[in-house]
Design a binder for these strands. Sequence first.
RNA 1: GCUGAUGUGGCUCAAUUGGCAGAGCAGCUGAUUUGUAAUCAGCAGGUUGUAGGUUCAAGUCCUAUCAUCAGCUCCA
Length: 638
Amino acid sequence: MIQIELKDGSVREYEKGATVLDVAKSISGRLGRETIVGKLNGKIVDVRYPINENGTLELLSFDDEEGKRTFWHSASHLMAQAIKRLWPEAQLTIGPAVENGFYYDIDLDHTFTPEDFSKIEKEMTKIVKEAPPITRWIATREEALEWAEKEGETYKTEMIENLPEDEPISFYGQGEWQDLCAGPHILNPSMIKASKIMSLAGAYWHGDADNKMLQRVYGIAFPKKSMLDEYLKLLEEAKKRDHRKLGKELDLFSMHEEGPGFPFFHPKGMVLRNQLETFWREKHQQSGYVEIKTPIMLSAELWKQSGHWDNYRDNMYFSEIDEQEFAVKPMNCPGAMLIYKSNPHSYRDFPLRMAELGQVHRHELSGALHGLMRVRSFVQDDAHLFMTFDQIQDEIVGVIQLADYFYKTFGFEYSVELSTKPEKAMGSDEDWEKATDALRNALEVTEIDYVLNPGDGAFYGPKIDFHLRDSIGRTWQCGTIQLDFQMPERFDLHYVGSDNAKHRPVVIHRTVLGSIERFMGILIEHFAGKFPLWLSPVQVQLITVSDAYNDFAQELAEKFIEKGIRVNIDDRVEKIGYKIREAQLLQIPYMLVIGEKEMTNQILTVRNRDTAAQNEYTVDEFLNKLTTNIENRTLELF
RNA sequence: GCUGAUGUGGCUCAAUUGGCAGAGCAGCUGAUUUGUAAUCAGCAGGUUGUAGGUUCAAGUCCUAUCAUCAGCUCCA
């Protein structure tokens, strides 16, 4: 007999060799039905896994991350089986679960069309009805290769050949179809009560653009039909907060064919932008930064010196001035280096924090452009910090805390990645190691959770990235901290130390918002256009009941303007309901109906955008509440 | 850049098998002076992304090109 400790701390006895499923069934029928995978002593195992020794076991269902992934992985098998039935010549590659569902990459001459989706879905439903039990077995390398040969699955042959010698090669099968797969999997496709093919995309084999492009079929699946409906509804909701749609509706910015990747900011978008920048300047000044501004175009010679010419030329724009080659800056660092070099520096100046809202241009691939999120020209909220080696950790910690402060002000959740040396990089392995250690230490000091992203650093140094999430769950890099030992060498920077000798300073590049454009995109989606008061393009809408009250509204407006409130008067001859509706659609925080009652009593009737509640205030009361909320950059309206 | 899809008034969308480009909203004009999410009527607005081609006839079919969307790749 063996002893299994369960999640609730209870211990149960089983025959040696009892499977995860046996355990689940023994506890309750429901657990028996819903358990998808087990976590045995911290390791994910198939429900078919026989337990041979004492240990702790967690039973995971679709509600658990690991359970969900397994479920979706099995759904991708179901889809693959359906596709193989419909197109037997299809060659299968890989079919993993992703954040929202699963995909399978398939090599097939027939190009899938959206019309094929329903065909595939129908076949999937048929298989679900057949309910073939999913079985697992281990094959030798020879058997596995034989299978791939027989099935004509050339990609699988390649995958088998690349498997490590000592790893057991497992197969999963359902009905007439088998697949090479590490698992784990659910017991039977009949557990998949609802599934839907979502979209189609091209994807390269092994993610390498030199390889053949495969067809990637995306799908989603759930153990309950109602969950699929809910998910589809959620997607609809997310579409409504797409910053491209809201940008148009709220008249914040526009994009034009004449300038692909170059956004145009409208007056209301500029209010938002300027508020952001004002906030940014205020906080940076408080945090000991000075501000600089460097030119958009600089000599090509400078970019050769900085290393951008060798490492970043494909992404740069060039032009000629007086027969000399110039480049439009893709980054702000070389300009900042020149400013540093224009004066001698002492260790007493350090740390020197030079910030720059710098407009950069980068030639991004046309297919990569995406609203404000990925553009070809954007303003980085950049800064270059110059310091001694001893100051590195404190400075990185300082930036991490600054970034945290900014994100918290907007109520963002964020994730952090540490990226290490890429293939195309300058500098010695030793320098890279030192720099990477410094970043890692700072992360550990601040006790921030992070994931490692090997090989994804900048060409001049490793980096810490801050990622924010958009409305449909895609994450975008915003803040970044990059340690750089290269620029100081290349530009021969130095400072005089306390020993009266010349030393090389260390440089940190960093952004917090990342790009103002991208950050605005994220903000729009995060708030779904309902900006907090301090960011709202129009903060107060005065709505007159009839033109008898226009003068009074005008008087009031002047009082608001005097306090710096962004106010707008709607004195059109329209019904109140009509004017309220328009202000509401523009997400204006406060709507004030101005009529007889207000004029005679000298009182304000205030409608709140979010609650639709109506409150009465005296003018001074309301003004005080407004200014306090704005000054504190409060997220909620009052 | 690659794969696939999509481009019709400012916006959202119609237009049988190729057969006279249309509606709602927004805009303008007039009437309505209105109390918390749409007052009524009239008017105007388009070389159907662009350039070619097929055809008696093209929004519709073909070719090229540009842009956008989804993903890949890349990245703030």
